[in-house]
Amino acid sequence: MHDLTGFQRDLLYTIAGLDEPKGLAIKDELEDYYQKEIHHGRLYPNLDTLVDKGLVEKGQMDRRTNFYTLTRRGRREIGDRGEWQAQYIDTSA
């Protein structure tokens, strides 16, 4: 996960939090978070990168609509990232 952009990591977390989301559902979630429009030209190439890296699987709902799910590796990478972050965060404050 160290070689992903922040946007790509946010895509992973968003996909993890939704049930087989379509691209537009992911786009809507990220637009709410970023509070600005996410263009298709940014979204779909980054989703494809995550698929190519083996972190996300892309399935087909119909001829025009794809859905996305995390692979086992994608879930493991998120867990590892969480453990790495936790060592730097003092939750007792």
Rank of each mutant, 00 (worst) to 15 (best):
M1Q: 10
M1C: 09
L4E: 04
L4K: 05
G6Q: 11
F7E: 03
Q8G: 07
R9C: 06
R9H: 11
R9T: 10
R9I: 12
R9A: 08
D10L: 10
L11R: 00
L11K: 02
Y13G: 06
T14V: 09
T14W: 03
T14K: 03
T14R: 03
T14A: 08
I15V: 11
L18Y: 02
D19T: 14
E20Y: 10
P21T: 06
G23V: 04
G23A: 10
L24A: 11
A25R: 08
A25V: 04
I26N: 00
I26S: 01
K27F: 01
K27W: 00
K27P: 01
K27I: 02
K27N: 04
D28I: 08
E29N: 03
E31Q: 08
E31D: 05
D32E: 14
D32T: 09
D32H: 08
D32C: 06
D32N: 12
Y33T: 10
Y34K: 06
Y34Q: 05
Y34T: 04
Y34H: 07
Q35G: 07
K36M: 11
E37K: 10
I38H: 01
I38Q: 03
G41S: 15
G41Q: 13
R42A: 07
L43R: 02
Y44S: 08
Y44D: 06
Y44G: 00
Y44C: 04
N46I: 00
L47K: 02
D48E: 13
L50Y: 04
D52K: 14
K53T: 07
K53Q: 12
G54T: 07
G54E: 07
L55Q: 06
V56G: 02
V56I: 09
E57K: 13
E57Q: 12
K58H: 05
K58F: 03
G59F: 09
G59T: 05
Q60D: 08
Q60K: 15
M61L: 14
R63W: 08
R64Y: 13
R64L: 10
T65K: 10
T65P: 01
T65I: 12
T65R: 12
N66D: 13
N66C: 08
N66M: 04
N66V: 03
F67Y: 13
F67I: 01
F67N: 00
F67Q: 02
Y68R: 00
Y68G: 01
Y68V: 00
Y68K: 00
Y68W: 06
T69Q: 12
T69P: 00
T71E: 05
T71G: 06
R72K: 15
R73N: 13
G74D: 02
G74P: 00
G74E: 04
R76H: 09
R76D: 12
E77Q: 13
E77A: 14
I78R: 03
I78K: 02
G79D: 11
R81E: 14
G82I: 09
E83F: 12
E83G: 07
W84S: 11
W84K: 13
W84G: 06
Q85Y: 14
A86W: 07
Q87R: 14
Y88F: 15
I89P: 01
I89G: 03
I89Y: 11
D90T: 09
D90F: 13
D90A: 12
D90S: 11
S92E: 14
A93F: 14
A93I: 15
A93S: 13
